[in-house]
Write a protein that binds this DNA or RNA. Sequence first.
DNA 1: CGATTATTATGAAAGCAATTGAAAGAAAAT
DNA 2: ATTTTCTTTCAATTGCTTTCATAATAATCG
Lengths: 259, 259
Amino acid sequence: MSSLPILYAEERRQSILELVNRSGRVAVGDLSKRFGVSSVTIRTDLQTLAEQNLLVRTHGGAVSTGPAAAEMAIALRRERKVREKQRIGRAGAALAANGDAVYLDSSSTSLAIARFLKSRRLLTVITNSLMIVQELLDAPHIQVMLTGGSFQRETAAFVGPYTHAFLNQVHIQIGFFGAHGIAAEPGLTDISPEIAAAKRPVLKRCRQAVAVVDASKWGRVGIAPFAGIDEIDIIITDDSAPADAVRAVEAMGADVRFV
Amino acid sequence: MSSLPILYAEERRQSILELVNRSGRVAVGDLSKRFGVSSVTIRTDLQTLAEQNLLVRTHGGAVSTGPAAAEMAIALRRERKVREKQRIGRAGAALAANGDAVYLDSSSTSLAIARFLKSRRLLTVITNSLMIVQELLDAPHIQVMLTGGSFQRETAAFVGPYTHAFLNQVHIQIGFFGAHGIAAEPGLTDISPEIAAAKRPVLKRCRQAVAVVDASKWGRVGIAPFAGIDEIDIIITDDSAPADAVRAVEAMGADVRFV
DNA sequence: CGATTATTATGAAAGCAATTGAAAGAAAAT
DNA sequence: ATTTTCTTTCAATTGCTTTCATAATAATCG
């Protein structure tokens, strides 16, 4: 067992990655014995690797992320905070009036809203998200418009200058925006500049801009800011949002609603 | 059969998902026996998956969902002239050079071309067809651009003025166009004015325009013409095309190639 | 058709393993 | 020597699964 005398953390993680990709799965206990470190250490390793999307964490171990082909479908479907998003989705959908042109961005919360809009009529849904188009395929009474642009595989969204050009031509009654983080400063942020760039022009075109963020987003700040708190009309979140972060945002005059 | 000793919850759910997608339905009792866990555990699994919209819960089990994915898959299976289209697709794909921007319209023959382009690199595929985007999801080396516009459910294509606007902004090396009919006069036709209107502007933007039509299209004339024979550089068809119709088109100077 | 019976579902409680967070110790880097 | 990073221990927490009792649903029979 001590055939590998000492390994740097990085080397060990590399080895773990090889193992999980070779056999498809690893167990914390096995790894702990194999490398001669505590199980807590292995867990932090797995967590680190999971954060980089190099494997998928499970109870007691981890499994490989699978073949790159199905990667997107699985990753996007493995939603978290499902219940919270569902409640936020229902509340958000209720804000759209008949006849409205509704914008849904490429976020899982917007997808939740789409699910509640499916049964509606006389709605136009504008989006840059492939997932939302697919979700609305069997909603025959909803007119669906896609922005077009360059397809970004990681997010299943369309981005880039052509997306921008499309969005500068439409008028929208109400727009829903997910975010990676929300904080008093700098406001709403996301993880990719392209995604943020796709959201920014739409905001200006919406009579009403609604941010939809579950509790985990509060206080977080992503690399790419796309909207200040003052640009958002309504913020919908769930009631487990941290109170101090919410207060800081409300102090700037935001209308925060809990579901 | 149950040689798998212990499965992580995640793995088990993944397996259940595969089973339900493969056979269309699963029963709680079967799953419970197969995985060697209690029926209550299976129920929580099914509930979790149902919350993520990955399947639909029923009494005693679950049935597969994905009206989007499944429906489209069925539509694709209804294709006719599969073998001919495959041959045409291979020949068409061979015309695209590395580095090209390729346009594929929303026709089943273009979809056949997309399948042959998947393994290529350094290609940009521009399309207004949702099915082609989906086909190229797992072709990571191909950049995919979608025109955007209004979604037309019958053809799974994007059409309308926004589509038009997008297409006026791009330059394309080679474009492939399916058609409902081809004849010396009025040339290439389709069944819907919207579809025809989406094809017309692209034609002018392509250095090379290729019509891909199986034998059944010759001599047929649809309601909406979109290109004269003189606007087309190459016509690819299969060798069972009616000779007289082909001759009439060739007499106008067309380059007709058989596969 | 209604009543009975069998099957399936749901909720609560409990056991166990895995996880997380905090605090402190060890190793490496500056 | 000091800071930083990594690792461990320990306690508290969470998550998964089971059992059992009860409710709801489907199927069967009179």
